[in-house]
């Protein structure tokens, strides 16, 4: 019902108007997909942190590790404490958490991001569909126009 209403309106638009609508949808799609990507990236980071937590366990206390000082400089060290970790909770605050709490923290974040992505996904899909409909209408109009021109 919604779509048929849309089509009735679309067919009354001129090709330049359709083109404008198409470009606008293009922009909206770009914004939405880039948000999706940032969400995905954030989720990946949390996932990595969650995975890294697994290596910090009582079994590994005292083992040699390489601690990154920068991305390309490491110093040797030993794992001294396998009970708690410091977690960045945002705006410059870090909280000391037990391993299980930290694991739950990451799980919570990942789930939250998944929820946000699930909310965004239908909107993206819908925009893609609208763009397709507009594009087809534009094509049809241009073709019709070309035919008329050739008749003359």
């Amino acid at each position: 019902m919604d779509i048929s209403f849309q089509e009735v309106q679309l067919s009354s638009l001129t090709p330049p108007q359709l083109k404008m609508l198409h470009d606008q949808l293009d922009q909206e799609i770009e914004v939405l997909t880039s948000s999706m990507q940032s969400l995905k990236g954030a989720q990946n980071q949390f996932n990595e942190s969650k995975q890294s937590l697994k290596t910090i366990c009582p079994k590994n206390v005292g083992k040699d590790i390489l601690v990154p000082l920068t991305g390309s400089l490491y110093v040797p060290g030993q794992l001294a404490d396998a009970d708690s970790v410091l977690v960045d909770i945002g705006t410059g605050y870090y909280a000391e958490k037990t391993l299980t709490d930290a694991d739950e923290f990451f799980k919570r974040k990942i789930d939250y991001l998944k929820q946000q992505m699930d909310k965004l996904q239908p909107a993206v899909q819908q925009k893609f569909q609208s763009r397709q409909v507009v594009y087809e209408m534009l094509q049809a109009k241009v073709m019709a126009h070309a035919k008329q021109q050739s008749k003359k």
Binding site: L86, G92, Y93, Y94, A95, E96, K97
Partner: peptide, 10 residues
């Protein structure tokens, strides 16, 4: 967080 948990500010 529980009462008395350690918090650090960057």
């Amino acid at each position: 967080l529980e009462e008395g948990a350690n918090i650090y500010k960057l």
